[in-house]
Amino acid sequence: MTALNCYAEGLRPQGRDVPWFDPHDGGAAARCLILLERPARIGDAPRFVSCDNPAPAQRNLR
């Protein structure tokens, strides 16, 4: 997960709103990559790209 989050950190100074990657998901060694537009904003909590998010898109993935 470190490599993915370092990549995301590198995009933030360019003004890109990039979420963190969920450490409980597959990470860089995952066998499948699912791209979603962005995680839902729920309050000011840190945002993660995760299949465990309570948004409709992630519920549909499960």
Rank of each mutant, 00 (worst) to 15 (best):
L35P: 07
M1G: 12
D44L: 09
P39A: 01
A28M: 11
M1N: 10
R38G: 02
R31E: 15
G43F: 04
D52H: 11
N5E: 05
R41N: 05
R16L: 13
G15V: 05
D52L: 08
V49T: 09
G26H: 06
P19W: 00
R41L: 11
C51K: 09
V18D: 01
R16I: 10
E9H: 09
G15Q: 04
Q58V: 01
T2G: 09
A29S: 15
A45I: 10
A29Q: 15
M1A: 12
D52I: 03
A28R: 15
L35Q: 11
P39Y: 01
L35M: 12
G15L: 06
G43W: 13
N5W: 01
D44N: 11
A8Q: 09
R59G: 05
A28K: 14
L36D: 01
G10D: 01
L33H: 08
I42Y: 10
A8C: 13
T2Q: 14
P39G: 00
G43N: 04
W20D: 10
N53F: 00
A45S: 10
L33I: 11
R12F: 02
A55C: 14
A57R: 03
P56Q: 06
A30D: 06
F21I: 00
D22Y: 03
R41E: 11
W20H: 14
N60T: 08
R62S: 10
R41K: 11
T2F: 09
E9N: 11
A40E: 12
N53K: 04
R41D: 03
E9I: 08
D25F: 03
L35Y: 09
C32L: 15
R41G: 03
D44H: 13
L36R: 05
H24Q: 15
E37T: 08
P39T: 00
I34P: 04
A30I: 03
C32T: 15
N53Y: 00
Q58H: 07
L4D: 06
Q14R: 14
L61Q: 05
A55P: 14
V18C: 05
L4V: 07
R38I: 03
C32Q: 13
P19Y: 00
V18K: 05
L35D: 07
E37I: 11
Q58L: 04
I34T: 07
M1Q: 10
P19L: 02
A8D: 03
G43P: 12
C51N: 13
S50F: 00
G43I: 06
P54V: 03
P46Y: 02
P56I: 02
Y7F: 14
P13R: 02
P23E: 04
I42P: 12
A8V: 09
